[in-house]
Structure formats: C-alpha cells, structure tokens
Design a protein around this nucleic acid. Structure first.
Lengths: 154, 154
DNA sequence: CTAGGTGCAAAAGGTTTGCGGTTAA
DNA sequence: TTAACCGCAAACCTTTTGCACCTAG
C-alpha cells in the first residue's frame, strides 16, 4: 500500500509512515475503499463504504468491499470497530484512541487518550497476563446532542 | 426477579442487592437461564446457555433463550458483552469491570478496575460530552496460555 | 383474568464463500 | 506468468419475529 495510496499525509489522522503491510496487493478497489475511510471521520460500515465507492466504481460488489475491508484489517491498514450488535465500522486512525458512541444520534467519534500507557495501570490483571491492546468505548451523549436536549427540554 | 432467584449471594460476583428490575416476570426458563449465567465465569453465549439449560429443560427453545437474555439485558439483570464479530456473550457481574479476551484460547474473563471513576480522566473528551458508561476490553494472552507457550517455545 | 412468556418455524440481516474470469506485480 | 483479486450468487449463522398456546401474578 505504501507508495500507491495518494497523499495519506493530507489526512488529519496521525498516521504511521504506512511502512510494510505484508503481501497486501494494491488494486483500484482497495485504493478507493481506503481513501473513502481515510476521508471520513464517521467510521463507516461496509455498506456505507460500498455506497460511496459505488459512485466512482459502479461495478464493485458488496462482497468485494467486505473482502477488502477484511484484508485491510488483517494487514493493519484499518481497524475494525465493533459496538453492540451493529454492523462493523472501519477506522483509518491507527493511533491509540478511544471511541465515543453517542446514544442519541448513534455517531461514533474518536477520543484521544492523554496517557495511553497509563491506562493499563487501572487494571487489576492477574500476574502473567500479556496485554497486546486495549479497546476503550465511551457510551454517552456527544456535545451536539447534549446542546440540543438542553435547548429543547422534554 | 429479586426474591425468586435462589441464593444469588452464593455467587462470587459483587452483586448489587438485586432490587427492582421493573416488570420483569419470573418464569422457570428465566430462572434457569439466570442461574446458568451466574454459575459460570466464562461469559457464555446464547447457544452455550441454551445447551446447558436444555439439559434441565429439554423443551426450551433457542428463541426463548434469546428472548430471555434480551429481556434480562434490558432490565439490567445481566450484561451483554460484544467482542469482535463473535456471538454476544452474557455476564452476571454488574460491578464495574473490564474484560480480558485471550487471543490464544478465546476465553473471556473479568478484570477488576482499581479506580473506575478515574478511568474517564485519561480521555480527552470534547467539552459538553456526557459519559454514561465506559467499556474496556483488554486483548492479550491470559496467564494460563502465557505459561503454556513459555513451557513449549515454538 | 390477562398481559406477557413460550415454543416453533420462518425470516431477517450482516458476513463469508465457491467459482469462473481478470489483473497486479 | 501466476498467485491473488474481482464480481456474482448462494450459503452461513446469529438473532429476530409472527403466531397459537400457555402461565405468572
């Protein structure tokens, strides 16, 4: 993926240099799918990605989107975000961060962490446990929805 | 549910007094399903609960297990735990805690939190965000699997 | 008595897979 | 050149739902 993806630096995400992603073969479909996820901050699902990519590539199939997203997840190019029983969402922000799920509008947004390394210290893990990754989800109400419900009290 | 469930105190989980769970109607099926989840620490899925409950109640249907688990989740009697794309698991531990997902054996175990309230302080949340609940999942290797791989290096 | 629960079977909905043709490297 | 990928359709699997009967409160 490295050199073939156009200007990943234009994205706001603090991306790694996009070094090696193994034997990940770049195709027009994968490039467009990746660009779609990069250009959005709303963590689209497979079918949402499909809808957007379809505009530029009308012949693409939903199965291909699923296959590509799966390959990208395996390669570590994107991250799969699973909340509740909803369809998986995809996220191109590879930095350590949490997700805020607004229980009013349903939107998912990234939440930076102040001290990612210190998070594990809050856990009483059994001796010998090896931690590879922490997944933190915040359920609540986003600022926009909180403002709105304050303006229009029930 | 309160008085009809047999001796919830025998469970190791730090349970709340099991006060009011609204208009939750107790039935033999629900009692057995609840007891099953209480008696296990492995966060069984709906079909795993079904298998165990079926031994005692051969006529119960999987749909009923799903319906009951859903009703219990709504009432707050149990908690639904969703990791990856696997089937939902269920957890009777209502205390604030994280989950450890072992990437070797696939088991899910509870992880107590040292300072649950302080966890939110690690987040850079936008002003006005209202937090209702934090969900923390630890991906890694449990102690048992770590011991084993140390004893049998690849 | 009756609102709500149960069991069954069928449907729903997200995701995966098999296959023949195509393509990136 | 060829292993990997694409598009299509069918399969898969978890979960939900409609319905007739039953039961807890």
């Amino acid at each position: 993926m490295s050199e073939t993806v156009d200007s990943p630096a234009s994205n706001v995400h603090p991306l790694e240099p996009m070094a090696d992603f193994g034997d990940f073969r770049m195709t027009p479909q994968r490039r467009k799918i990746y660009e779609t996820i990069m250009s959005r901050s709303d963590h689209p699902s497979a079918s949402e990605v499909f809808l957007e990519v379809k505009d530029a590539m009308p012949s693409i199939s939903l199965a291909t989107v699923y296959n590509c997203l799966d390959a990208m997840t395996q390669s570590g190019v994107v991250r799969q975000v699973n909340l509740n029983r909803e369809p998986s969402r995809y996220c191109a922000n590879l930095a350590d961060h949490a997700h805020l799920l607004c229980q009013v509008c349903g939107q998912v947004s990234d939440v930076p962490l102040k001290a990612p390394d210190r998070l594990a210290q809050a856990l009483e893990l059994p001796d010998g446990t090896e931690v590879s990754h922490l997944d933190l989800t915040v359920r609540g109400v986003c600022n926009a929805c909180a403002q709105e419900s304050a303006a229009t009290p029930s």
